[in-house]
Amino acid sequence: MKLFSSVLSPYARKIRAAIHALGLVDRVEIVNVDISSSPAEVVALNPLCKIPTLLTDEGTGMYDSRVIVEYLGMVAGSDILVPATGPRRCAVLRLQALGDGIADAAILYRGLLAAGLDADARLAARQMAAVTRGLATLERMAAESALGDVACPDAGALSVGCALGFLDARFAELEWTGQYRALAEWYGHLTATDCMRRSAR
């Protein structure tokens, strides 16, 4: 298999972390690409030309990150990242949606500002409000020990961790760790796990 990735993409990092967590390192080649140049290999597999995109052993393109996580779990014969059934599955998918949603809003916010929109413009402010509400929700969950077992993170925890890593890299001015102490402590434990450490690059 081949994963088309980018170092700073939180969604691609989630898949790199999943590959390590599932023990698939020897089965997936990771290829970093400049997606802004619309690389032909990615376009051929994913009409949206987005990363991450996974080329399966059968020659099929898999996208987006949520689908790839599920697919890799099937390949590995493991449901440690996404439970197969039941309420726990819904809880993991919900947390994954929150983590991805924070990343979505942060990336859109940066894009709007790069396009010349003021930070206090309605559309830009709406994205940053989504980020801060998401962080506040995660803070409550961390305080209630509702973010899962950090020692064995699931897809929800990986999504949240990779979104927080993106904020660290691109939004240092937020200084979110000083505002959300329970979440920062949880994140510190998560980033010490093998799959998060090894997916950082």
Rank of each mutant, 00 (worst) to 15 (best):
A192F: 05
L3H: 01
I30E: 09
I102L: 11
P47S: 15
G61T: 11
M1V: 12
A121D: 15
C152I: 06
L98E: 08
V69G: 00
P153C: 04
A44L: 10
W176A: 02
V92T: 10
E70D: 14
A84Y: 02
A21I: 00
F4W: 00
V131D: 06
A121W: 01
A172V: 12
Y109V: 03
R140Y: 02
G156N: 08
Y11E: 02
Y63S: 12
A155G: 09
A146H: 06
G116D: 10
A124G: 06
R181M: 11
V92D: 10
D104T: 10
R170E: 12
T177W: 00
A182W: 04
Y180R: 13
G156C: 13
L117N: 03
D149C: 12
A157C: 09
V42K: 01
A172P: 03
T53M: 03
H20Q: 05
F171S: 01
N32R: 06
R27I: 04
A155Q: 05
A142K: 07
V75D: 03
L55G: 07
L147T: 01
A192D: 15
R198S: 13
A192L: 14
A172T: 04
D118H: 07
L72E: 07
A76P: 11
R16K: 14
D57K: 08
D100P: 00
R94T: 13
M196N: 08
K50F: 02
D154C: 11
S199H: 11
M1R: 06
M62A: 10
P83W: 10
R126G: 10
G101T: 04
Y187E: 03
S159H: 06
N32S: 13
R13G: 07
S145C: 11
P10A: 03
V25Q: 15
S78K: 07
L81A: 07
W186T: 06
A119C: 02
T85I: 11
P87V: 07
E29V: 14
E41H: 04
A143N: 13
G134N: 05
I19S: 02
A151C: 11
A130R: 14
A184P: 05
Y109G: 00
I68N: 09
V28M: 05
V69Y: 01
I102Q: 01
S65P: 05
I30V: 15
K14H: 05
A151I: 04
M128K: 06
Q179G: 13
M128Y: 13
S5P: 05
R170Q: 14
I19E: 02
T53H: 10
C49E: 04
V67Q: 08
D79K: 08
V131H: 04
A184T: 06
L98D: 08
I68E: 03
